[in-house]
Design a protein around this nucleic acid. Sequence first.
DNA 1: CTGTTAGCGCATTCAA
DNA 2: TTGAATGCGCTAACAG
Lengths: 346, 346
Amino acid sequence: MAKKSAVGRSSKPSLKDVAKLANVSVMTVSNVINGRMARVGDEVAARVREAVRELNYRPQRSGRSLRLQKEFALGLTVLHPDRRFLDDPYITQVAAGMSNFLATIGYSLMVNGLRNLKALDTLMERSFGYDGFAVMVSGEREQRVQVYKKLAQLKLPMVVIQDAPPPDLPEVSSVCQDDGVGAGMLVERLIDKRAKRILFAASRQVWPAMERRAAAAVAAAGKRARIDHLSCSEDDFELSIRQIETWLRSHPNTDAVMGGNDQLGLAAMQAAERCGLSVPSELMVTGYNAFLFQKFSKPTLCSVSSPAYEIGQEVSKMLIDLINGDGGEARHLLMPVSVVDGGSIG
Amino acid sequence: MAKKSAVGRSSKPSLKDVAKLANVSVMTVSNVINGRMARVGDEVAARVREAVRELNYRPQRSGRSLRLQKEFALGLTVLHPDRRFLDDPYITQVAAGMSNFLATIGYSLMVNGLRNLKALDTLMERSFGYDGFAVMVSGEREQRVQVYKKLAQLKLPMVVIQDAPPPDLPEVSSVCQDDGVGAGMLVERLIDKRAKRILFAASRQVWPAMERRAAAAVAAAGKRARIDHLSCSEDDFELSIRQIETWLRSHPNTDAVMGGNDQLGLAAMQAAERCGLSVPSELMVTGYNAFLFQKFSKPTLCSVSSPAYEIGQEVSKMLIDLINGDGGEARHLLMPVSVVDGGSIG
DNA sequence: CTGTTAGCGCATTCAA
DNA sequence: TTGAATGCGCTAACAG
């Protein structure tokens, strides 16, 4: 008497069930399902399709994955201390871009929020359900590098979003938007309008892209204008306003505030109002990324449009190429940006 | 000579590789990995762990899934015509709540945006990588019901978010926030402040929750106040403002505008300003859901706090229970809400 | 054109 | 305490 494994067969129908009902072999069913019609006669195919419909059969991913050694999914991993890691519209747009692109090729998107390095360790001990992943990391450069190195140990195709991979990981690709140019264009506009002293208001939680924007602003200003820096609480909007307000009161010769993103730009608008400064005549304000918020103020915020959605698409394409072995060298994509006009600079 | 299958073994290490290196059987490795220490000697366990580290072994999900007939993942499916289906902060919070809860039990979250019914058909033909899913659907009730019925054919655990499942699907659970109470409380406040005529500004893209808010407002007002309705373009903020502005100009006796969400509340604030109406003395304004936006206006928007994040967590728990067979009857959870004060009603 | 065989990685069962 | 056998659902390769 043969030994019996105790694995209950799935309640879901399998190829075998369909094959039995249609009176064909499992391979024939597989061929029909996967559109290999050259290998199946029309009449048989019809019978198979009928059986599929009758049983409400749908291929099971785990079997296919095991056989083909592919998970047919990509991951999006975000390292951010706030539990609402998905709240940032930037991340949201990247996720939508990835999900929509992947849907066209039968892949899925798995999202992962990690609040700290410990969560990363936990994640890494587990098995993964994807063939490659994109990663967005907040925090200081040193910590970010640590994260990238750790993730690289997974030996999975990986693309870094909005940051430069560390130099000792030459095989890792990246996609960034051209924030150097974006911030530079904003500074030019402000200087054109005779700004001599500009405050760059960043979020306290460091994002690499915001650091780049700040650095680019300084570089673009050169000796023509002075750029000050302030880091503001990110999750407490009221606090951000007060921090900028305090700064404006103690530095009354400030001509403009550049927000590291649109939220901070909006905070600056309100800070100006509390100081009795009219925008743009007495204080100019800019934002960055121009998602939903950009139009929420009056006058509307001058900002820079972000290709975050397109970044999601490009990242996905790069990962798919890497998975299929068409990757070649690591690529570093720089997506163009453009200024979105708004009354906040006149 | 034995036939050889052409399936290349994975480049990733498997239990077999670890077993060979540690000079034990695969089962011993499996037992160590899964913490079944009662079945393994300490010395052997240490040897296994060393081998695991050396090979950088991580269990492969596909094998485990196939064996246990579980995918260890849940899905979040959103039906919304905009490609930026994830942009709404509501969805974002639900996703974060799900993802964070699932991370604690070793599950993953897969997100799916569907722009129309055709995309739904495409999705349904494919194999799934999850054991159950939550669904948020926009559109008219009739279309929504059609979607729920179709999805129910998957025979997977399913929970509807922010809508009532159709009566002929008694096995489907749901989670809603108590928008009847929320909208009612807002109306009470407005009537307390002597509002007689109130405009409810909804988005043109129908969401069931917004319909409920509108209906609850009418019910709460009774004969004490008149509730008018306006549907506004959702993605074009400037257009929303103009639509509300037009309405206010032609109905000067309006006392208050209730926005179906905070974006619409903000649009109403700007429309008021364009009409020269001061808020709240000449026109009161409320929003709904109180995510990021609520504080963006001056005065801040009176709104209703949404437990969207908690909904994400509850939905996940319900789905996990259903998957584990602890489900019992269909449950219909109603999450409490509370009013968030703001200067926009005085 | 259709069927048979084999094995992907894992965990349950039973034997040693 | 450890090992061997078995099969979950699927598809490449080959045989008929």
